[in-house]
Amino acid sequence: MADKILPKDKTEGFIQALGRKFVVVAPVERKDAPAEFKEIGAGDKVILDGSQMMMPPKDYLLPRYETLLKVSTRPGEVEVQPVLPDEKPRVMLGMWLPDAQAIQVLDKVFLEGKFRDPYYAARRANTMLVAVMPAQMRWSWFCASTDDVEKWKPNVDAIMYDLGDRFYIEVTSPRGEALVEWEGLAEPSSEDVAGKDRLWEQFKSHGVLPFSDGKFYEQLAWDHPIWAEIAQKCIGCGVCSYMCPSCSCFDIQDEVCGTCVERYRCRDTCQFEDFTLMGSGHNPRPDQLPRSRQRLMHKFKYQHEQYGVVGCTGCGRCVELCPVNVDIREVLNKVCAEKEPEPAV
Protein backbone atom coordinates (compact mmCIF):
# COMPACT_ATOMS: atom_id res chain seq x y z
CA MET A 1 0.00 0.00 0.00
CA ALA A 2 1.11 3.51 -0.73
CA ASP A 3 2.78 4.98 2.33
CA LYS A 4 3.37 8.74 2.32
CA ILE A 5 5.28 11.46 4.13
CA LEU A 6 3.53 14.46 5.63
CA PRO A 7 5.92 17.29 6.48
CA LYS A 8 4.71 18.79 9.77
CA ASP A 9 4.47 22.31 8.32
CA LYS A 10 1.89 20.99 5.87
CA THR A 11 -0.31 19.43 8.53
CA GLU A 12 -2.88 22.17 8.29
CA GLY A 13 -3.23 21.73 4.52
CA PHE A 14 -3.55 17.98 4.98
CA ILE A 15 -6.36 18.40 7.50
CA GLN A 16 -8.10 20.89 5.22
CA ALA A 17 -7.84 18.45 2.33
CA LEU A 18 -9.32 15.69 4.47
CA GLY A 19 -12.02 18.12 5.55
CA ARG A 20 -13.26 18.39 1.98
CA LYS A 21 -14.08 14.67 1.93
CA PHE A 22 -14.69 13.81 5.56
CA VAL A 23 -15.84 15.20 8.85
CA VAL A 24 -12.50 15.41 10.68
CA VAL A 25 -12.49 14.42 14.35
CA ALA A 26 -9.28 15.08 16.27
CA PRO A 27 -7.99 15.94 19.75
CA VAL A 28 -8.49 19.67 20.30
CA GLU A 29 -6.39 21.52 22.85
CA ARG A 30 -8.15 22.80 26.00
CA LYS A 31 -7.08 25.06 28.82
CA ASP A 32 -5.60 23.12 31.82
CA ALA A 33 -7.14 19.88 30.55
CA PRO A 34 -6.35 16.95 28.30
CA ALA A 35 -7.26 17.50 24.64
CA GLU A 36 -10.70 16.27 23.68
CA PHE A 37 -11.88 14.54 20.50
CA LYS A 38 -14.37 16.62 18.57
CA GLU A 39 -15.32 17.62 15.06
CA ILE A 40 -12.80 20.31 14.39
CA GLY A 41 -13.92 23.81 13.59
CA ALA A 42 -12.40 27.22 13.00
CA GLY A 43 -9.94 28.31 15.67
CA ASP A 44 -9.44 24.82 17.11
CA LYS A 45 -5.85 23.87 17.86
CA VAL A 46 -5.45 20.23 16.90
CA ILE A 47 -2.85 18.07 18.65
CA LEU A 48 -1.79 15.38 16.22
CA ASP A 49 1.52 14.09 17.55
CA GLY A 50 0.10 12.09 20.48
CA SER A 51 2.73 13.50 22.80
CA GLN A 52 0.28 14.53 25.51
CA MET A 53 -2.41 12.98 27.66
CA MET A 54 -5.75 13.18 25.87
CA MET A 55 -9.32 12.21 26.61
CA PRO A 56 -10.24 8.78 25.21
CA PRO A 57 -11.67 8.82 21.67
CA LYS A 58 -14.74 6.96 22.94
CA ASP A 59 -15.94 10.39 24.10
CA TYR A 60 -16.78 11.04 20.47
CA LEU A 61 -18.23 7.66 19.49
CA LEU A 62 -20.03 7.07 22.79
CA PRO A 63 -20.55 10.57 24.15
CA ARG A 64 -20.59 11.25 27.89
CA TYR A 65 -24.12 12.51 27.38
CA GLU A 66 -26.42 11.89 24.45
CA THR A 67 -30.15 12.18 23.93
CA LEU A 68 -31.67 8.90 22.80
CA LEU A 69 -35.23 9.98 22.23
CA LYS A 70 -37.69 12.72 22.97
CA VAL A 71 -41.34 12.39 23.81
CA SER A 72 -43.62 15.34 23.34
CA THR A 73 -47.06 15.42 24.83
CA ARG A 74 -50.05 17.50 23.89
CA PRO A 75 -53.55 16.88 25.19
CA GLY A 76 -54.65 13.53 23.72
CA GLU A 77 -51.42 13.09 21.80
CA VAL A 78 -48.04 11.53 22.49
CA GLU A 79 -45.22 11.64 19.98
CA VAL A 80 -41.95 9.72 20.28
CA GLN A 81 -38.99 10.86 18.21
CA PRO A 82 -35.67 9.03 18.28
CA VAL A 83 -32.68 11.37 18.09
CA LEU A 84 -30.17 9.57 15.87
CA PRO A 85 -26.82 11.01 14.90
CA ASP A 86 -26.04 11.48 11.20
CA GLU A 87 -24.09 8.85 9.28
CA LYS A 88 -21.44 11.00 7.69
CA PRO A 89 -18.06 9.93 6.34
CA ARG A 90 -15.70 10.69 9.19
CA VAL A 91 -12.04 10.35 9.91
CA MET A 92 -10.65 10.30 13.45
CA LEU A 93 -7.06 11.46 13.76
CA GLY A 94 -4.55 11.70 16.58
CA MET A 95 -5.47 8.77 18.77
CA TRP A 96 -2.89 6.42 20.23
CA LEU A 97 -2.80 2.94 18.75
CA PRO A 98 -4.12 1.33 21.97
CA ASP A 99 -7.06 3.77 21.78
CA ALA A 100 -7.80 2.61 18.26
CA GLN A 101 -7.68 -0.99 19.42
CA ALA A 102 -10.03 -0.09 22.28
CA ILE A 103 -12.55 0.98 19.64
CA GLN A 104 -12.44 -2.63 18.38
CA VAL A 105 -13.52 -3.66 21.87
CA LEU A 106 -16.36 -1.11 21.80
CA ASP A 107 -17.37 -2.44 18.38
CA LYS A 108 -17.73 -5.92 19.85
CA VAL A 109 -19.98 -4.58 22.58
CA PHE A 110 -22.14 -2.25 20.53
CA LEU A 111 -22.21 -3.75 17.03
CA GLU A 112 -21.95 -7.51 17.40
CA GLY A 113 -24.23 -10.04 18.99
CA LYS A 114 -27.95 -9.87 19.42
CA PHE A 115 -28.30 -6.13 19.70
CA ARG A 116 -26.75 -3.51 17.50
CA ASP A 117 -26.69 -0.08 19.11
CA PRO A 118 -28.07 2.32 16.48
CA TYR A 119 -26.55 5.41 18.10
CA TYR A 120 -23.04 4.03 18.27
CA ALA A 121 -23.45 2.43 14.86
CA ALA A 122 -24.43 5.71 13.23
CA ARG A 123 -21.24 7.39 14.40
CA ARG A 124 -19.03 4.38 13.83
CA ALA A 125 -20.20 3.48 10.31
CA ASN A 126 -18.06 5.20 7.68
CA THR A 127 -15.58 6.34 10.32
CA MET A 128 -11.94 5.80 9.45
CA LEU A 129 -9.39 5.51 12.24
CA VAL A 130 -5.94 7.01 11.99
CA ALA A 131 -3.65 6.23 14.90
CA VAL A 132 -0.54 8.15 15.85
CA MET A 133 2.75 6.72 17.00
CA PRO A 134 4.42 9.44 19.06
CA ALA A 135 8.16 10.02 18.86
CA GLN A 136 8.54 8.86 22.44
CA MET A 137 6.69 5.96 23.97
CA ARG A 138 4.58 6.99 26.93
CA TRP A 139 5.93 5.72 30.23
CA SER A 140 2.62 4.23 31.28
CA TRP A 141 1.98 2.18 28.14
CA PHE A 142 2.03 -1.60 28.36
CA CYS A 143 0.23 -2.40 25.12
CA ALA A 144 2.53 -5.20 24.05
CA SER A 145 1.71 -7.07 27.26
CA THR A 146 -1.99 -7.15 26.54
CA ASP A 147 -1.95 -8.59 23.05
CA ASP A 148 0.08 -9.31 19.93
CA VAL A 149 0.20 -5.72 18.66
CA GLU A 150 0.97 -6.81 15.09
CA LYS A 151 -2.66 -7.93 14.96
CA TRP A 152 -3.78 -4.37 15.71
CA LYS A 153 -2.46 -2.83 12.51
CA PRO A 154 -5.24 -3.93 10.14
CA ASN A 155 -7.84 -2.62 12.60
CA VAL A 156 -6.90 0.96 11.79
CA ASP A 157 -6.84 2.58 8.38
CA ALA A 158 -3.53 4.35 8.77
CA ILE A 159 -0.83 5.03 11.35
CA MET A 160 1.05 8.32 11.51
CA TYR A 161 4.57 7.89 12.89
CA ASP A 162 6.11 11.03 14.36
CA LEU A 163 9.58 11.28 12.82
CA GLY A 164 10.45 14.72 14.22
CA ASP A 165 9.83 17.19 11.38
CA ARG A 166 7.51 14.84 9.47
CA PHE A 167 4.87 12.19 9.86
CA TYR A 168 5.29 8.85 8.12
CA ILE A 169 1.77 7.80 7.11
CA GLU A 170 1.51 4.06 6.90
CA VAL A 171 -1.66 2.94 5.14
CA THR A 172 -2.85 -0.22 6.86
CA SER A 173 -6.19 -0.93 5.16
CA PRO A 174 -7.47 -0.72 1.58
CA ARG A 175 -9.92 2.06 2.37
CA GLY A 176 -7.10 3.97 4.06
CA GLU A 177 -5.82 4.77 0.54
CA ALA A 178 -8.44 7.49 0.37
CA LEU A 179 -6.63 9.33 3.18
CA VAL A 180 -3.37 9.83 1.32
CA GLU A 181 -4.62 11.14 -2.01
CA TRP A 182 -3.65 14.73 -1.24
CA GLU A 183 -0.95 16.01 -3.61
CA GLY A 184 0.92 17.78 -0.75
CA LEU A 185 2.20 14.42 0.52
CA ALA A 186 5.67 13.19 -0.42
CA GLU A 187 7.10 9.76 -1.08
CA PRO A 188 9.02 8.20 1.81
CA SER A 189 12.78 7.71 1.56
CA SER A 190 14.48 4.57 2.82
CA GLU A 191 15.54 6.55 5.92
CA ASP A 192 11.91 7.38 6.61
CA VAL A 193 10.99 3.73 6.34
CA ALA A 194 13.80 2.85 8.74
CA GLY A 195 12.57 5.54 11.14
CA LYS A 196 9.08 4.14 11.02
CA ASP A 197 10.30 0.59 11.58
CA ARG A 198 12.37 1.75 14.53
CA LEU A 199 9.35 3.36 16.18
CA TRP A 200 7.28 0.24 15.58
CA GLU A 201 9.95 -1.96 17.13
CA GLN A 202 10.05 0.37 20.13
CA PHE A 203 6.30 0.13 20.46
CA LYS A 204 6.41 -3.66 20.28
CA SER A 205 8.95 -3.93 23.05
CA HIS A 206 7.81 -1.00 25.22
CA GLY A 207 6.35 -1.70 28.63
CA VAL A 208 6.39 -5.47 28.31
CA LEU A 209 5.63 -6.78 31.75
CA PRO A 210 7.95 -9.34 33.29
CA PHE A 211 5.72 -12.35 33.08
CA SER A 212 6.05 -15.05 30.53
CA ASP A 213 3.10 -15.76 28.30
CA GLY A 214 0.75 -12.85 28.99
CA LYS A 215 -2.23 -15.14 29.41
CA PHE A 216 -3.48 -13.33 32.47
CA TYR A 217 -7.03 -14.21 31.56
CA GLU A 218 -6.24 -17.75 32.62
CA GLN A 219 -4.62 -16.71 35.86
CA LEU A 220 -6.94 -14.06 37.23
CA ALA A 221 -8.81 -15.75 40.03
CA TRP A 222 -12.05 -14.67 41.65
CA ASP A 223 -10.63 -15.28 45.12
CA HIS A 224 -7.14 -13.83 44.63
CA PRO A 225 -5.96 -11.84 47.68
CA ILE A 226 -5.00 -8.92 45.40
CA TRP A 227 -8.61 -7.73 45.25
CA ALA A 228 -8.69 -7.01 48.97
CA GLU A 229 -5.39 -5.19 48.66
CA ILE A 230 -6.70 -2.91 45.91
CA ALA A 231 -10.06 -2.40 47.57
CA GLN A 232 -8.39 -1.25 50.77
CA LYS A 233 -6.87 1.79 49.09
CA CYS A 234 -9.38 2.32 46.26
CA ILE A 235 -11.56 5.35 46.96
CA GLY A 236 -14.31 4.30 44.55
CA CYS A 237 -14.13 7.18 42.09
CA GLY A 238 -14.69 6.84 38.37
CA VAL A 239 -11.40 8.16 37.00
CA CYS A 240 -10.14 4.79 35.72
CA SER A 241 -13.29 3.86 33.88
CA TYR A 242 -14.32 7.32 32.67
CA MET A 243 -10.87 7.89 31.19
CA CYS A 244 -10.57 4.33 29.90
CA PRO A 245 -10.84 4.10 26.10
CA SER A 246 -12.65 0.76 26.24
CA CYS A 247 -14.91 0.99 29.31
CA SER A 248 -18.39 1.15 27.88
CA CYS A 249 -20.88 1.08 30.76
CA PHE A 250 -23.64 3.63 30.66
CA ASP A 251 -26.80 4.63 32.44
CA ILE A 252 -30.11 5.61 30.86
CA GLN A 253 -32.27 8.21 32.53
CA ASP A 254 -35.54 9.93 31.75
CA GLU A 255 -36.03 13.57 32.42
CA VAL A 256 -39.13 15.71 32.10
CA CYS A 257 -38.61 19.05 30.42
CA GLY A 258 -41.75 21.16 30.27
CA THR A 259 -44.19 19.33 28.02
CA CYS A 260 -41.63 16.81 26.81
CA VAL A 261 -39.62 13.91 28.14
CA GLU A 262 -35.99 13.37 27.28
CA ARG A 263 -34.37 9.96 27.51
CA TYR A 264 -30.62 10.23 27.67
CA ARG A 265 -27.61 8.03 28.08
CA CYS A 266 -24.66 9.02 30.23
CA ARG A 267 -21.56 7.41 31.70
CA ASP A 268 -21.71 5.00 34.58
CA THR A 269 -19.10 2.80 36.21
CA CYS A 270 -18.88 -0.42 38.18
CA GLN A 271 -16.82 1.53 40.73
CA PHE A 272 -19.82 3.47 42.01
CA GLU A 273 -21.95 2.18 44.82
CA ASP A 274 -25.22 2.86 42.98
CA PHE A 275 -24.12 0.96 39.87
CA THR A 276 -25.52 -2.31 41.20
CA LEU A 277 -27.92 -0.89 43.77
CA MET A 278 -31.36 -2.47 43.34
CA GLY A 279 -34.66 -0.70 43.75
CA SER A 280 -35.28 -2.89 46.76
CA GLY A 281 -32.19 -1.52 48.50
CA HIS A 282 -30.19 -4.72 48.01
CA ASN A 283 -26.72 -4.31 46.58
CA PRO A 284 -25.01 -7.44 45.24
CA ARG A 285 -21.68 -5.60 45.30
CA PRO A 286 -21.95 -4.04 48.72
CA ASP A 287 -18.39 -2.79 49.12
CA GLN A 288 -15.29 -1.88 47.18
CA LEU A 289 -13.80 -5.38 46.94
CA PRO A 290 -16.29 -6.84 44.43
CA ARG A 291 -16.31 -3.53 42.55
CA SER A 292 -12.54 -3.45 42.12
CA ARG A 293 -12.55 -7.11 41.16
CA GLN A 294 -15.30 -6.60 38.63
CA ARG A 295 -13.50 -3.96 36.61
CA LEU A 296 -10.31 -5.96 36.15
CA MET A 297 -11.94 -9.36 35.78
CA HIS A 298 -14.28 -7.89 33.19
CA LYS A 299 -11.47 -6.37 31.17
CA PHE A 300 -9.03 -9.23 31.32
CA LYS A 301 -11.18 -12.31 31.70
CA TYR A 302 -14.89 -11.92 30.96
CA GLN A 303 -14.46 -9.89 27.78
CA HIS A 304 -11.87 -12.34 26.57
CA GLU A 305 -14.25 -15.21 27.17
CA GLN A 306 -17.13 -13.37 25.58
CA TYR A 307 -15.52 -11.75 22.55
CA GLY A 308 -12.05 -13.25 22.26
CA VAL A 309 -10.39 -9.86 22.80
CA VAL A 310 -8.81 -8.47 25.94
CA GLY A 311 -10.70 -5.43 27.19
CA CYS A 312 -7.56 -3.55 28.20
CA THR A 313 -5.22 -2.31 25.50
CA GLY A 314 -2.54 -0.84 27.76
CA CYS A 315 -3.03 2.89 27.11
CA GLY A 316 -1.94 3.66 30.67
CA ARG A 317 -4.48 6.39 31.46
CA CYS A 318 -5.62 4.70 34.66
CA VAL A 319 -1.97 4.06 35.57
CA GLU A 320 -1.22 7.77 35.31
CA LEU A 321 -4.41 9.18 36.76
CA CYS A 322 -5.44 6.88 39.60
CA PRO A 323 -5.64 9.11 42.69
CA VAL A 324 -4.22 6.39 44.94
CA ASN A 325 -1.72 4.88 42.49
CA VAL A 326 -3.44 1.55 41.95
CA ASP A 327 -1.24 0.53 39.02
CA ILE A 328 -2.90 -2.04 36.79
CA ARG A 329 0.56 -3.19 35.62
CA GLU A 330 1.57 -4.02 39.16
CA VAL A 331 -1.68 -5.85 39.69
CA LEU A 332 -1.05 -8.03 36.63
CA ASN A 333 2.51 -8.64 37.71
CA LYS A 334 1.46 -9.74 41.13
CA VAL A 335 -1.25 -12.00 39.84
CA CYS A 336 0.73 -13.55 37.01
CA ALA A 337 4.29 -13.72 38.28
CA GLU A 338 5.39 -16.67 40.35
CA LYS A 339 6.97 -14.36 42.85
CA GLU A 340 6.49 -10.65 43.44
CA PRO A 341 8.60 -8.36 41.23
CA GLU A 342 11.50 -6.53 42.84
CA PRO A 343 10.33 -3.16 44.15
CA ALA A 344 11.43 -0.16 42.10
CA VAL A 345 14.56 1.54 43.48
Binding site: D254, E255, V256, C257, G258
Partner: peptide, 11 residues
Protein backbone atom coordinates in the same frame (compact mmCIF):
# COMPACT_ATOMS: atom_id res chain seq x y z
CA UNK B 1 -37.44 11.24 36.91
CA UNK B 2 -36.21 14.68 37.71
CA UNK B 3 -38.34 17.74 37.80
CA UNK B 4 -38.97 20.14 35.12
CA UNK B 5 -35.72 21.58 33.84
CA UNK B 6 -36.88 24.33 31.57
CA UNK B 7 -40.38 25.06 32.81
CA UNK B 8 -39.38 28.37 34.31
CA UNK B 9 -37.69 29.37 31.10
CA UNK B 10 -40.64 28.32 28.94
CA UNK B 11 -43.08 30.13 31.17
Amino acid sequence: MSEDSTLVQER
